[in-house]
Design a protein around this nucleic acid. Structure first.
Lengths: 227, 227
DNA sequence: TCAAAAGTGTTGACCCTACACCCATGA
DNA sequence: TCATGGGTGTAGGGTCAACACTTTTGA
């Protein structure tokens, strides 16, 4: 595989290894990602990311980006895909290991920095490099993920109503035709939430608040289609 | 794992970017991967892989490994995961983008080279670096994949009986309890195979041969909410 | 007492599993 | 005619989508 000679031969060019993080959140019934305005290309935005340190694990580097950009720790973080087209950065050869993160909106610290923003995935600004594709891939992955795992709960506040949970699913899937009764039945049968003794005011009957069960089963084995 | 043998001295950190490929095949009712005996660590085996060229895309590099190792082109190939722990190679910092490939057994060229072998995923030899984990991750992915896509057909010969197809599924899933009648019904309903006018001899009634339909739907969208 | 939204029950269609059964072939 | 393995039909239990219904609140 790798022999020492290869190193010498290959030090002629300089690789950079970067991580980029697609940070999702749900705000105002909208699925949003964190983006940063680029200083070197006015009008273009990019995902939070940077070069991986010499002794840093990839996931550590992604987590560091998260901390630096959102000052939040302990976040759902998962590797997405590695992008390495020779042309993806015109300045030099960079391969980027993309991660995606899920962050509940109530954990976002207010931030006066105008170079940072949360943008709807359904209305992205011009993105640098291949970052638009990263967001797209991350969205596809997220949609798969919430259908067989409890990942959607990472985007919810500590306590939430079942309607809010249903709206989270509908916003992520961009499909607002979910049946209320059937959705509730599934959630209850999964024993994944438990009620707390508090209610949220609404325009009608108050809605019971629930929280995620600590002992909940986090994944369900996918149904078989083939065969 | 492997003890540091000859650590290369650097004045600066040099990143290397490699690809490693988990090549699956089905032979003798067994799911196997292609492995190569390491010259530098007798008794240890590794996946086919190598350093990515300066102007080479990641997938191209993986495809090149496939060609060089198996002399086969046009293979199902997909990115798996990127491994970048600082300690994964004791000699220097290497990040490896792992791919997995599916190769029908009848496309394998006979090979006298004793340094190469096909090994059962259920009985791997000692693997170098984190390659055992790569195989494990690839197997997990493969199992998911065949349940919602037609990926399993990539491991079948041009023509096959339904029993052979069923055995492929059972071998990959390591679960031999699939019901014959129900399996056949699903395959037929999926309109994914078509009969050819040939039969295969068996100890009993001859088995009809089928082939994959070119116009078959390759993925089925799972419309299942958690759980 | 009405609008609004929470929350539940029912029903028929569909699908999945288990298992019994028939069919074609060679010895 | 029997063993062997290919190939199919069916009953019943479970799941799901659709939709109507009841409950609770504020105005």
């Amino acid at each position: 595989m790798i022999n020492p000679k290869a190193v010498i031969e290959h030090t002629e060019w300089v690789w950079s290894v970067a991580v980029d993080v697609v940070i999702f959140t749900l705000r105002n019934r909208d699925l949003q990602v964190h983006v940063i305005q680029r200083q070197d290309h006015p009008g273009y935005w990019s995902l939070p990311g940077g070069i991986v340190g010499a002794t840093e694990a990839l996931e550590e580097a992604a987590m560091r980006q998260l901390r630096e950009q959102t000052t939040v720790d302990d976040v759902y973080l998962q590797q997405l895909f590695t992008y390495g087209d020779p042309q993806r950065d015109s300045r030099r050869r960079v391969i980027s290991v993309a991660y995606f993160a899920l962050l509940a909106a109530d954990r976002i610290k207010p931030d006066g920095d105008e170079n940072r923003a949360w943008c709807s995935v359904y209305d992205l600004p011009p993105m640098a490099f291949d970052h638009a594709r990263m967001v797209d891939d991350a969205l596809t992955r997220l949609r798969y993920k919430i259908e067989y795992s409890a990942a959607a709960f990472e985007l919810m506040p500590e306590e939430f109503t079942l309607r809010e949970l249903q709206e989270a699913y509908m916003t992520i899937l961009n499909d607002h035709r979910l049946d209320k009764a059937n959705f509730r039945k599934k959630i209850h049968e999964a024993r994944i939430v438990e009620p707390v003794n508090r209610y949220q005011k609404t325009a009608g009957r108050p809605a019971r608040l629930y929280r995620f069960r600590k002992d909940a089963r986090l994944e369900s084995k996918a149904r078989r289609f083939f065969p």
